[in-house]
Simulated assay, not measured.
Amino acid sequence: MKCKICLVSIQHLSKAAIAFSVGFFCLLVGYDNIIDFNTNYQFVHSVLSMDKMESFFSGNPTLEARSIDNSNVYLVGYWLIIVGEIITGLVCMFGSIYMFASINKKRFVNGQVIYLVGATFAVLLWYFGFAVIGGEYFSMWANQMNGQMKAYTFATFILITAIYVYMPELKKMPTIDSSTN
């Protein structure tokens, strides 16, 4: 019985720690965007205005008509990103803290659900916001300020953590059958 509790404890600690790291990451990204505001503001400006397209970009009038030439829209869009990152980070952190406080308790699942909500916000932010809207709608793939690969990396990693954090715990250690070797 003690071994079973130990195994569950280790899994709970692992899941809470991973949720904490994602929450901390999201908060750090939001914080960095505030203290170094101009760097990523220029990125948002460039993507939305489509002003730094690579030379290979054909300049299709239909795609270029999507560009936005309004600094107020850039500012609102950037602040929406920052607020999204901070809210996402806070929800993920709250889920992780709830998990840490609930190790070996039935309510641990509540922390997992809270983290799942935060992870969903993160995937929506980096996949839908950056890859779909930025990448495809504003053709960020052809922009010198292309952030698609980072967005895919963040979204993929966070989605994997959501799957891991929410999957059921092992109740006993798997055994290895040495007779098959």
Results as ranks from 00 to 15, higher is better:
1 M>L: 10
3 C>V: 14
5 I>L: 12
6 C>F: 06
8 V>Q: 11
9 S>P: 02
11 Q>K: 02
12 H>E: 04
14 S>C: 12
19 A>V: 07
23 G>Q: 00
25 F>E: 04
25 F>P: 03
27 L>W: 08
27 L>Y: 04
30 G>C: 10
33 N>K: 09
36 D>N: 15
40 N>L: 09
42 Q>L: 13
43 F>D: 02
43 F>Y: 13
43 F>A: 07
43 F>Q: 02
44 V>Q: 12
44 V>I: 14
45 H>V: 03
45 H>P: 01
45 H>I: 03
48 L>K: 01
49 S>N: 11
51 D>P: 00
51 D>Y: 05
53 M>P: 03
54 E>R: 15
54 E>N: 15
55 S>Y: 08
57 F>C: 03
57 F>K: 01
58 S>M: 04
61 P>A: 12
62 T>M: 13
62 T>Y: 13
63 L>C: 05
67 S>W: 01
68 I>H: 01
69 D>K: 15
69 D>T: 14
70 N>E: 05
71 S>W: 12
71 S>C: 02
73 V>M: 09
73 V>N: 00
73 V>S: 05
75 L>A: 08
77 G>L: 00
77 G>W: 00
78 Y>L: 08
78 Y>S: 06
79 W>L: 11
80 L>H: 07
82 I>Q: 00
84 G>P: 04
87 I>N: 06
87 I>M: 09
88 T>R: 00
88 T>V: 04
89 G>S: 07
90 L>K: 00
92 C>T: 03
92 C>P: 07
94 F>H: 06
95 G>I: 03
99 M>Q: 14
100 F>N: 04
101 A>F: 13
104 N>F: 07
104 N>T: 06
106 K>D: 13
108 F>A: 03
108 F>T: 03
112 Q>A: 10
114 I>W: 02
115 Y>T: 08
119 A>Y: 00
119 A>W: 00
119 A>G: 10
120 T>P: 01
120 T>Y: 02
121 F>V: 08
122 A>F: 02
123 V>H: 00
124 L>P: 00
124 L>C: 10
126 W>M: 06
126 W>G: 02
128 F>S: 11
129 G>C: 06
130 F>W: 11
131 A>L: 11
133 I>E: 05
134 G>Y: 05
135 G>S: 09
136 E>T: 14
139 S>W: 02
141 W>T: 12
145 M>T: 15
146 N>F: 05
147 G>R: 09
147 G>K: 02
147 G>I: 09
147 G>W: 04
150 K>S: 15
151 A>M: 02
153 T>D: 11
155 A>W: 08
158 I>R: 03
160 I>Y: 09
163 I>R: 03
165 V>C: 11
167 M>R: 13
168 P>C: 10
168 P>S: 09
170 L>T: 05
171 K>N: 14
173 M>E: 13
174 P>H: 05
177 D>R: 11
177 D>S: 11
178 S>I: 13
178 S>V: 13
178 S>T: 14
179 S>F: 08
179 S>I: 11
180 T>Q: 10
181 N>R: 11
